[in-house]
Design a protein around this nucleic acid. Structure first.
Length: 734
DNA sequence: GAGTTTGAAACT
DNA sequence: CAGTTTCAAACTC
């Protein structure tokens, strides 16, 4: 069996076309109802019908009401059942010959749409294989995707149950922007099991040659129960053609025209969330059921994950023999899970409406492409002729999560010792509480950073209140360190730690755990710390209930050995990146809010994350924007701080410099009073004294003394004058 | 500070 | 393993 039709194989990227793990919808009625796409070029018979027709014009009414509408081609008898979404009716016409499908939104109700089943609103000329994409909820023009003509002869009918019949490669992708659309699970009788959709985000690092990161969204049907008459979905391919070698599956060449030029990409607000570094961990395949007879019916549902509240419109296509069937019976009850893939500008919806009966459709998020890619896998039992590399089996294969070769994707998530933990080296245990000096200023109870099978015995055997301190060169193993505030308790007689244990001596770990705050899972407990200054009620996460606490710890570790491991550890060996040990599971925050543990830890989401609509990857424009904003804010704060500091410094310096000037009046230095006039006067005085001594015939020594005394008098007068001037200025300034 | 949103963890 | 429930943190107003 060819899991992937040759056409699709030639159209889809290699990594997308990796079908090894793609789960296919099981056939409850193998060989009778399934319509299989032929790998060969002969794919002219898209519908299961006993009546050959020259042309197959199928009008489908996509009703979004709660009722399910099934339309039937008047010519071929092909009926299409749509499980509706409210207030959405989209009739369209299928022309298998030209392989075009046009979807146009109409405002009619579901019933009207059903009535219009026999009235194809549009007939497409049979001149090429096209895939039309329309925007549901918008009046935009339909998008036409041109598929390469396979050369098949249109109009050739296949009998029901013909496993070699080729489903027409009709690809209809409807993209809508209604925010109020919600998936409706009908109450009608259905032949399909309730199906659930999930999103697989395949992340890979942006290839160097790629202009933008590629993201894949793969949808698959999760059918845990057998479904009668299920067929795969018709292939719907959008997005750029990618090539990527896969270690599992050989590369495949895609020849489909690239949808870059389609209107799909030009639809505003269709930001597709890109999940980086992710493998197709979430795959949802919508089962497709095709009735083998008028009574039986196969439904085709194609889920599409779209951005921001986009809803999935499921279309059931029945290929019943009866020409016209407008009924709400035999509808498919499907649990369609809307997936918000991100984006901006409000809720939008994308709907991929499968028209063919067989192919499985997988929505793919291509990192960086900002568009949804849908991988179509045609489950068929037909001969594999023409199938380039697809597996050929005799039965429809079960779709499995696709494994995409993403060499750049970091897969392993080794957990390293807690970053926030204070690692201490074990000390030889002795009896009784021990208090050992430590370099840490504040001791905190630390849980072992490693899985504690080795530590646990010693840990549990530790006397309550034992304090372990790091030893020089200690390993990475963390041990319980009692907070400093509890050291006093420890140093007290042992009754402190055993006081309450007797009452719970028989309590199990769970019971003990239940007594702990928040069932033992408060942050303090999770962090391996005692509760301190918490608002816990009836808190047992303290030293007084150490026994119960240790039991609870043991219980937690038994249940989850990594319970006390840090969530954020280092990446794979050789990688310096920090990674979340479990990965986040964000759905609505886009991993760009602190709700996301990855984002909160300022790390990128990785392949292990299960988030939907992730934007927390390196190439994410949203993340870059946030980072830029954060950086800008930080820079701004730093600049403001620096400016304040500088200004303060400048003010201080200015004050320091301007003080002499300002106080020049009152704080004038004494030497400023020694002016030229003062010096001349002083010199005159000294000369006058010298003359006086000469006239009196005083000895030289006496003459010098008289001159020096006069110099002293002059200085005294200068100082006196200066002091007087300062006091005068001060009095004036006041 | 109250109400809402979100997602991890527990639970089924 | 997947869906549901719980609830505290994050977020908004």
């Amino acid at each position: 069996m060819d899991v992937v039709s040759p056409e699709l194989n030639s159209l889809l990227p290699d990594e997308i076309m990796d079908t090894e793990d793609i789960e296919d919808v099981p056939h409850s009625q193998p060989g009778t109802t399934a319509v299989h796409s032929e790998p060969s070029d002969d794919a002219s018979v898209p519908m299961e019908t006993d009546t050959p027709v020259a042309s197959e014009n199928v009008t489908l009414s996509l009703a979004t009401s709660t009722t399910t509408t099934k339309t039937t081609d008047s010519v071929t008898g092909t009926s299409v059942t749509t499980s509706g979404l409210q207030k959405l009716t989209t009739p369209f016409t299928i022309s298998p010959a030209n392989r075009q499908i046009i979807l146009n939104k109409v405002a009619s109700q579901a019933s009207e749409a059903a009535k219009s089943a026999g009235n194809p609103p549009q007939v497409i000329k049979q001149d090429g294989q096209k895939l039309l994409v329309t925007a549901i909820g918008k009046s935009g023009q339909p998008i036409v995707l041109q598929l390469p003509h396979t050369g098949s002869k249109p109009g050739i009918s296949q009998t029901a149950g013909d496993t070699k019949s080729q489903a027409p490669q009709f690809k209809v992708v409807t993209i809508g922007g209604r925010s109020d659309l919600k998936p409706v699970v009908g109450n009608q009788v259905t032949t399909l099991q309730t199906q659930q959709l999930k999103t697989v985000q395949i992340a890979k690092k942006t290839p160097a040659s790629s202009a933008a990161p590629i993201k894949f969204i793969i949808t698959k049907t999760v059918n845990s129960k057998g479904i009668s008459a299920q067929t795969s979905m018709p292939p719907v391919i959008t997005g750029r053609v990618l090539t990527q070698s896969s270690p599992v599956m050989p590369p495949r060449t895609i020849t489909l025209s690239e949808p870059h030029n389609t209107n799909l990409q030009s639809i505003p607000g269709k930001k597709i969330a890109i999940s980086p570094l992710k493998t197709p961990s979430k795959v949802t395949v919508v089962s497709v059921a095709s009735p083998t007879s008028g009574a039986s019916q196969k439904s085709v549902a194609l889920p599409v994950n779209v951005a921001l509240g986009q809803q999935i419109l499921t279309v059931q296509q029945s290929t019943s023999v009866s020409p016209v069937k407008v009924a709400t019976s035999q509808s498919t009850t499907q649990n369609i899970k809307p997936v918000a893939v991100g984006g901006v500008g409000g809720s939008q919806f994308k709907t991929i409406i499968p028209l063919a009966t067989q192919p499985n459709v997988q929505q793919i998020q291509v990192p960086g492409s900002r568009f949804h890619y849908v991988r179509l896998v045609t489950a068929t039992t037909a001969s594999s002729t023409g199938q380039p590399s697809g597996p050929s089996t005799s039965s429809i294969q079960t779709a499995k999560p696709m494994v995409v070769s993403t060499a750049a994707v970091r897969m392993s998530v080794p957990v390293v010792p807690a970053q926030t933990m204070k690692q201490v080296a074990p000390k030889p245990l002795t009896s009784g509480p021990q208090v050992v000096t430590t370099t840490q200023t504040q001791q905190r109870l630390i849980m072992p950073a490693t899985p504690l099978p080795q530590i646990q015995p010693n840990f549990t055997n530790l006397p309550p209140g034992t304090v372990l301190t790091p030893a020089p060169g200690g390993g990475n193993v963390g041990y319980a360190v009692v907070p400093a505030q509890y050291v006093t308790q420890i140093q007290q007689p042992p009754f402190v730690t055993l006081a309450s244990s007797s009452s719970f001596s028989a309590s199990t770990g769970i019971q003990t755990q239940a007594r702990l705050p928040l069932n033992g899972y408060c942050d303090c407990f999770a962090n391996g710390e005692f509760c301190n200054n918490c608002n816990c009620n009836n808190c047992f996460n303290n030293l007084e209930h150490e026994t119960e606490r240790l039991k609870a710890i043991k219980t937690c570790l038994d249940r989850n050995p990594e319970a006390f491991k840090p969530k954020i550890g280092k990446g794979k060996e050789g990688e310096s990146d920090r990674r979340h040990s479990k990965g986040c599971n964000c759905k609505r925050s886009g991993c760009l809010k602190n709700y996301c543990e990855c984002y909160e830890a300022k790390i990128m989401c990785s392949s292990i994350c299960k988030c939907i609509g992730c934007k927390n990857f390196e190439e994410s424009p949203e993340r870059k924007t946030l980072m830029h904003l954060a950086d800008a804010a930080e820079v701004r704060v730093q600049q403001q701080t620096a400016a304040k500091t500088k200004l303060s410094s400048q003010i201080s310096d200015l004050l320091m410099r301007t003080t002499p000037v300002i106080s020049s009046g009152s704080g004038r230095l004494p030497y400023t009073f020694v002016t030229k006039e003062v010096l001349e006067a002083t010199c005159e005085c000294l000369l006058e004294q010298a003359k006086k001594a000469e006239q009196t015939h005083q000895p030289q020594v006496e003459a010098e003394r008289m001159i020096l005394e006069e110099f002293g008098h002059c200085l005294m007068r200068i100082i006196s004058s200066a002091g007087k001037a300062k006091s005068d200025c001060a009095s004036i300034n006041c």
